[in-house]
């Protein structure tokens, strides 16, 4: 407490000295100095803005383990899934123009694509990438959809209620993968089922006590059945097949937000 008092006195003394010093300086010089100071800060802010904007060419591939993210990543980059994949332990990252764009002439803006592993133990990794994300592709396995519907919806719910996603209105593409197989569910079916699941989650995630699971935000409109159109950000649906290289809809989505 005494320390605090001492500090106060000291600070007062300093401010007095400072004012005296200022009074000695001719006013014209003072204004010039203030002007320069203002100018540089504005410049600084602008440049930070600019850097941020140029930085945000980051697109995240997320979704449950086994949904086909890594295959899609390499399809987009190399046009091939090489010798196949196993469960990812670390993210795959790359800044590139899509394989299909290589033939196009002129300078194309590269995309920073991150394939975030879907294993639930590695979920916290996603949060590290969300602040810089310009768009998210949420990959769903359309073949083995029903057994994974709840888990996928929960993961998507966590993304849609994340503070970064809500505040930056990060667009999300619900990408139904593995549509090369006839038994794959349609994107309309998948969208409806996931909306239903999220509706249920909205009920169970209402927070009344410290024993509840804490999400940053709630989504949907009070008193209405949930639909993706209620989200703060834009959620669209598409189909793809990583195995056969059917990625046109994903590319269109990404290029909507990262202009070539």
């Amino acid at each position: 407490m005494e320390n605090l008092e001492d500090l106060k006195i000291l600070a007062e003394q300093w401010s007095h000295q400072g004012i005296e010093y200022l009074q000695k300086i001719p006013p014209s010089q003072l204004y010039a100095a203030i002007g320069v100071l203002l100018f540089t800060t504005i410049l600084l802010f602008l440049s930070i803005r600019l850097v941020r904007r140029t930085k945000s060419n980051t697109v995240l591939l997320s979704g449950l383990s086994g949904s086909g993210k890594t295959v899609l990543f390499y399809q987009l980059r190399d046009g091939s899934s090489h010798q196949g994949t196993v469960t990812s332990m670390e993210p795959n990252e790359g800044t590139f123009v899509f394989h299909t764009e290589n033939t196009k002439k002129g300078k194309i803006k590269p995309v920073h694509l991150v394939d975030v592993p879907g294993h639930s133990r590695l979920r916290p990794k996603l949060e590290e990438f969300l602040p810089q994300a310009a768009a998210i592709v949420f990959v769903v396995d359309a073949l083995e959809f029903l057994p994974n519907c709840r888990a996928a919806s929960e993961y998507l719910y966590d993304i849609l209620t994340n503070a970064n996603v809500v505040k930056n209105k990060i667009p999300v593409l619900l990408c139904c993968n593995k549509t090369d197989k006839l038994t794959a569910h349609t994107k309309e079916f998948i969208r409806k089922q996931m909306e239903k699941e999220i509706e249920k989650l909205r009920a169970s995630r209402s927070t009344v006590s410290t024993a509840d699971i804490a999400n940053d935000f709630t989504i949907g409109i009070e008193g209405q059945v949930f639909s993706f159109s209620h989200c703060y950000n834009k959620v669209t649906v598409a189909e793809a097949s990583g195995l056969t290289g059917e990625t046109a809809q994903i590319q269109d989505f990404i290029r909507e937000y990262i202009k070539p």
Partner: peptide, 25 residues
Amino acid sequence: IFTRGGLILWTCKELGNALKGSPID
């Protein structure tokens, strides 16, 4: 041989036996 990111770089084609289940995953 695969990367931590999950891309298979090399497998022995000679051995070639398809593994039952997915022991690697």
